[in-house]
Write a protein that binds this DNA or RNA. Structure first.
Lengths: 194, 194
DNA sequence: ACAAGCTATCTATGGATATAGTGAGTTGGC
DNA sequence: GCCAACTCACTATATCCATAGATAGCTTGT
């Protein structure tokens, strides 16, 4: 259900086509939410049908057009309502923890190799998060820049600070994962020799 | 796809009916994986069709029977293969972070209230995790006890240590969430007064 | 002039997931 | 003897999500 709100959230920054959104969802916005285009286009259609969005046909080249989606007042109202409604925390369901609980079924070397891969992934992910956080802090992040262009300094400050807050949470999470992976190496060493 | 492996993992401990599994998935095993019974029964049927499990009709009362599922050699082989295959880390998609990035759209008091709710949830969750971790460490956890009953001390030690390792990861994650929520309160105070 | 690659939108398939039911048998307490 | 609570298995519906592929126009470099 959150996809709808992620879409509205993005579109409050500036009107976009499904393609634009899809690209954003593959780049830095993906840290907060991601969906493939095959999910985005039907969702946009349904949301337009539900009156949360309106689309404007924009010429593209000589013959073609593209559909630019705008958030309606109803859409914004529903977004605000969601923002202020209590969040039902959902079950944690991460295959990495499932695997870890059963590491005794796998060869220690295979486990070590997987930990190395997880480590590489999270280190890269962490670097991306920190890069993005920096572009938020200096306001060069393109999506953010477009968003705050029309805002006063006070509003811009709030917007930026909350984005950074979200990223600080993601960064802390990534660091926690990396620390856990480190503990995994230590445990392997202890249980199966170095 | 991980549901299949979660089911095999559980069934390697002892044969169970769909109902047993459903109960386990609602209790402490739920920390590592959870699914409703409406997902479990069809999955078990499909897995039996695929040869990963076999079922034995066990009498229950005078007229009724129940189906007890056992892991086949093929099922165990597929589980081991999964355990040793590289894990594709999936996108993080937590609505809490999506919301946090757009807190400026909500009333500060509503945000504060939500943070309180999140805090309460994670504190309770953390307490449950720590309780469960303790029952793993002293081997009184019923599912674990059934699992290690047939194992030698060396194997039991490995099994227990890896379970504890998984829980330590979940505990660290919960603590990180709580620290982030604390930062949220501090940020609200700074941006909107105490 | 044309191919390669990008922009743009959409469909198909199949499993994952949540919520909400149906229905039959069993067990235990009063 | 009966009712409530529990055990057991399953179905229905609807959305979520990932992977894959279809189609068509546009832009750019050679």
């Amino acid at each position: 259900m959150s996809l709808r709100y992620a879409l509205i959230a993005l579109l409050t920054g500036r009107p976009m086509t499904g393609y634009d959104i899809s690209k954003s969802f593959s780049r830095s916005v993906a840290h907060v939410w991601h969906a493939p285009d095959s999910q985005i286009y039907p969702a946009l259609n349904r949301m337009e049908r539900d009156g949360l969005l309106t689309s404007v046909e924009v010429p593209w080249g000589k013959k073609a057009t593209k559909k630019e989606y705008h958030v309606t007042d109803a859409g914004l109202a529903e977004f605000r309502e969601w923002m202020e409604s209590p969040q039902v925390p959902q079950w944690q369901r991460d295959p990495a923890y499932l695997k870890a609980a059963y590491f005794d079924f796998a060869d220690p070397e295979a486990v070590r190799e997987q930990l190395r891969q997880q480590q590489a992934y999270w280190e890269e992910h962490l670097a991306m998060l920190e890069d993005t956080r920096a572009t938020l802090a200096d306001r060069t992040h393109p999506t953010l820049a477009a968003r705050i262009a029309k805002l006063g300094e006070r509003e811009a400050e709030l917007t930026v600070r909350y984005k950074i807050y979200a990223y600080d949470g993601l960064i802390a999470r990534a660091r926690t994962e990396l620390a856990w992976i480190q503990d995994g190496f230590a445990l392997l060493d202890e249980l199966h020799g170095t």
